[in-house]
Amino acid sequence: MLADGLHVLFCGINPGLMTAATGHHFARPGNRFWPVLHLSGFTPRLLKPAEQGELLSYGLGITNVVARATARADELTAEEYAEGGRLLTAKVTRVRPRWLAVVGVTAYRAAFDDRRARVGPQERTIGDTRVWVLPNPSGLNAHWTAAAMAEEFGRLRVAAGGQRVLPRFVVPR
């Protein structure tokens, strides 16, 4: 789900098995990405994974650090993360979103070799693209509540435009 000039390109770690089976990002029922995206004001209503194409109309895109599907992200190797970081950098350089939002601090640290990264805006940029690390919305990440995640996503939303993202027409690439 990419287009040139997005407000925010969200980047998950890698496809889970449900995502691989359906072709829809964050498709596992326990994943909190879609509810948190709505609660934070990025979307005017709760989208279902099958409606991911609507993200482009809000100036939002979605991709992954690593393309290989796994049951759990801890099945990925350091080499896969490093290669994913290189490929993601090339992708961001090509489509030039205002913000890259990596969903998962551990994935960001591994992909960009930044052991000190914390959730929030990063010093790193990719060209003119700013980088923000968000908490992982997986149900396995129990120490982040949906409300706390929505607050962090909302901080990014404000930084990306200052108000709720309104629909716009975007031609997919």
Score class of each variant (00 low, 15 high):
155 R>Y: 05
127 G>C: 10
165 V>S: 14
172 P>C: 09
87 L>V: 01
59 G>H: 03
34 W>Y: 10
29 P>D: 12
160 A>K: 05
87 L>D: 12
14 N>V: 02
162 G>I: 05
115 R>V: 07
136 N>M: 05
108 Y>L: 07
56 L>Y: 03
30 G>M: 06
76 L>Y: 06
16 G>F: 09
50 A>E: 12
70 T>I: 07
149 M>W: 01
173 R>Q: 15
58 Y>V: 03
39 L>H: 09
4 D>N: 15
130 R>A: 11
105 V>D: 05
69 A>V: 04
107 A>H: 08
118 R>E: 15
164 R>H: 10
34 W>F: 08
119 V>K: 05
74 D>R: 00
27 A>M: 11
72 R>A: 13
79 E>F: 00
61 G>S: 06
129 T>I: 05
33 F>C: 11
24 H>L: 03
168 R>E: 14
53 G>C: 04
155 R>I: 00
54 E>T: 03
151 E>F: 08
67 A>F: 13
155 R>H: 14
139 G>V: 00
10 F>E: 12
38 H>Y: 12
106 T>Q: 12
3 A>V: 00
163 Q>M: 11
7 H>Y: 12
18 M>I: 09
138 S>G: 09
94 R>W: 08
90 A>Y: 04
95 V>E: 15
140 L>P: 00
100 L>V: 01
17 L>R: 13
133 V>T: 06
79 E>V: 00
58 Y>Q: 14
157 R>Q: 07
41 G>T: 06
138 S>D: 07
104 G>E: 10
8 V>P: 03
63 T>K: 07
160 A>S: 14
137 P>H: 07
119 V>F: 06
61 G>A: 04
59 G>I: 03
80 E>A: 08
157 R>P: 01
40 S>I: 01
81 Y>P: 05
40 S>Y: 11
44 P>L: 01
137 P>M: 02
58 Y>F: 15
49 P>R: 10
24 H>V: 02
20 A>C: 03
134 L>C: 08
145 T>G: 11
11 C>Q: 00
108 Y>N: 08
72 R>V: 08
29 P>I: 02
9 L>N: 04
